[in-house]
Amino acid sequence: MSRTPHHTLRIRRLVLRVAAPLAGVGLALALPHAAFADSGATVQLAANSLPVVIANLRAWIMGILAAIATLFLVLAGVYWATAGGDPSQVDKAKLALRNALIGYGLAVLAPVLLQVLQGIVGG
């Protein structure tokens, strides 16, 4: 069964329906919040130590990489399921699967890389 351009367009629309809200949420979280007016009280900044910062960074990086890798894994499954024997779609699915595996590999290696970074900057 060959895929029609209409079917490909439907898949792209479906991906955009998922990607657009996710991008909106990401943008909203990335923008800084409005600053509050100065109350006149002394402000003390609480800075974490380097090991705490590295641990927090490790958790964030692992989470982000795992989420992106999972997205690529889902896309690979969708591409593979909708390929219908089309070699170009199967190749696209294999590429997405490879990217997912690379992402999972980086998520696993993130603690090691951040430990090296911590050793370089001292802490």
Rank of each mutant, 00 (worst) to 15 (best):
M1Y: 06
S2T: 15
S2Q: 11
R3N: 04
R3I: 10
H7Q: 13
T8C: 14
R17I: 09
R17C: 10
V18L: 07
A19L: 10
A19V: 09
P21K: 11
L22K: 08
L22F: 11
L22I: 13
A23L: 07
A23K: 00
G24P: 00
G26C: 06
L27H: 02
A28M: 04
H33T: 06
A34E: 06
A35R: 06
S39F: 04
G40P: 02
V43D: 05
V43R: 08
V43I: 09
Q44S: 12
L45Y: 14
L45D: 15
A46P: 06
A46L: 15
A46H: 13
A47Y: 12
A47K: 15
A47F: 14
S49R: 15
L50S: 11
L50V: 15
V53A: 09
V53K: 04
V53E: 03
I54R: 05
L57T: 05
L57K: 09
R58H: 03
M62Y: 04
G63L: 12
G63M: 09
I64L: 13
L65V: 06
A67V: 04
I68P: 01
T70K: 04
L71D: 09
G77N: 05
V78K: 03
Y79Q: 11
W80Y: 08
W80H: 07
A81Q: 08
A83L: 01
G85D: 02
G85F: 04
P87H: 03
S88T: 12
S88F: 07
D91S: 04
K92R: 13
K92D: 09
A93F: 00
A93G: 02
A96L: 04
A96N: 02
L97T: 05
A100I: 01
A100W: 01
A100Y: 00
A100L: 01
I102P: 03
G103L: 00
G105Q: 03
G105S: 05
L106V: 02
L106Y: 00
L106P: 01
L106K: 01
L109R: 05
V112D: 08
Q115R: 15
Q118M: 11
G119Q: 14
I120M: 14
V121D: 00
G122V: 12
G123D: 00
G123N: 01
